[in-house]
């Protein structure tokens, strides 16, 4: 409600405030959110936080290659998490890698959400032909595992950041479309849609201004889970050497680089990027799990 509400209870009336209060009730979810925000900040400000620019060859010294964590460099500062085979500081490398992993994960999830939501809404609103076509494509897509679809696309198109994002969008849109359609099918039968239709509003306005906002809460939950999945899938593809090119290494590629040294006991090159990946995915999942409880009206007390 607005500021004209009774001054004693303005806090409880606002749905957003209520949502924040309910979300904050879970310490685990708050912790997950805090960790994720920290990771995002680290990734965004990698230039300032990282002690060296890992892709500026002038700053690297091959003599520093494969040093264990805590070693001193030739230039004098300490490598907190050791160095890789090129003498790069692993900590700086991870910050830059996180940046690419997050950008690809979040970016593809946003694109996929736009495509999938639009198609799902249209399928639910118009039904008949459009519904049949969209849902058949979704069924076909979901009958193949995500890794296989991504593999096909990257095998045909070749590897680059754009193609990875494209592959992730193609893998993910179907999930959004199916879920959004299911929600919108229920909402479409409600009175407010009928009322909007009686006012002879154009369909675009009904779909995007009336139907869409009411489908948003479940959509947010799906989007959170999909971001985590996209980051994991991107890391897997990069680990297989099909993802981002070697000039823009994400966490997955850093792990792949360290793989051959791991067998000789130099664990840190693979271990720490893997740990960063793990913490990122788990923190997003913690937030997502709790969001699902908060936003699901059936679980409301």
């Amino acid at each position: 409600m607005s500021e004209t509400a009774v001054p004693n209870h303005p806090v409880e009336e606002s749905p957003f405030r209520r949502f924040v209060a309910e979300f904050a009730a879970s310490k685990v979810a708050l912790f997950g959110l805090a960790v994720f925000v920290l990771i995002a900040l680290l990734a965004i400000f990698a230039n300032w936080i990282g002690p060296q620019n890992p892709y500026d060859l002038a700053q690297l010294d091959i003599m520093d290659g494969r040093l264990p964590p805590g070693s001193k460099s030739v230039a004098g500062y300490t490598y907190l998490l050791g160095t890789d085979d090129q003498g790069r500081d692993m900590f700086s490398g991870m910050l830059y890698g996180l940046r690419i992993s997050l950008a690809v994960g979040v970016g593809s999830a946003i694109f996929a959400a736009c495509v999938g939501t639009t198609l799902g809404l249209l399928a639910a609103f118009f039904g008949r032909r459009i519904d049949t076509i969209v849902m058949r494509v979704v069924d076909l897509q979901l009958s193949f595992p995500s890794i296989l679809v991504a593999l096909m696309i990257l095998a045909v198109l070749g590897k680059s950041v754009t193609n990875v994002v494209l592959a992730l969008v193609i893998v993910e849109w179907a999930g959004y479309a199916r879920n959004v359609r299911a929600i919108a099918m229920v909402e479409r039968k409600r009175e407010y849609i009928e009322a909007a239709a009686c006012l002879a509003l154009p369909w675009r306005r009904i779909v995007f201004r009336h139907l869409l906002p009411n489908c948003l809460p479940p959509l947010i939950v799906i989007a959170t889970q999909q971001v985590a999945r996209a980051i994991a899938l991107e890391a897997t593809l990069s680990f297989l050497g099909l993802g981002v090119p070697i000039t823009e290494p994400s966490l997955g590629l850093l792990i792949a680089n360290g793989y051959q040294y791991m067998l000789s006991g130099k664990y840190w090159i693979s271990f720490y990027p893997g740990l960063a990946l793990l913490v990122t995915i788990v923190s997003i999942n913690l937030v997502g799990d709790h969001l699902r409880d908060v936003l699901n009206p059936r679980l409301k007390r």
């Binding site: 985590a228 994991a232 890391a235 897997t236 680990f239 297989l240 997955g252 792990i255 793989y259 791991m262 067998l263 006991g265 664990y267 693979s270 271990f271 893997g274 990946l277 793990l278 995915i281 788990v282 999942n285």
Partner: peptide, 22 residues
Amino acid sequence: SILGFSLPSFWVGLMLIMTFAV
């Protein structure tokens, strides 16, 4: 079981190698 769903399998594989083989 939540970890089983959310951990990337290649990373688990690497950790298995590191623990049981190396």
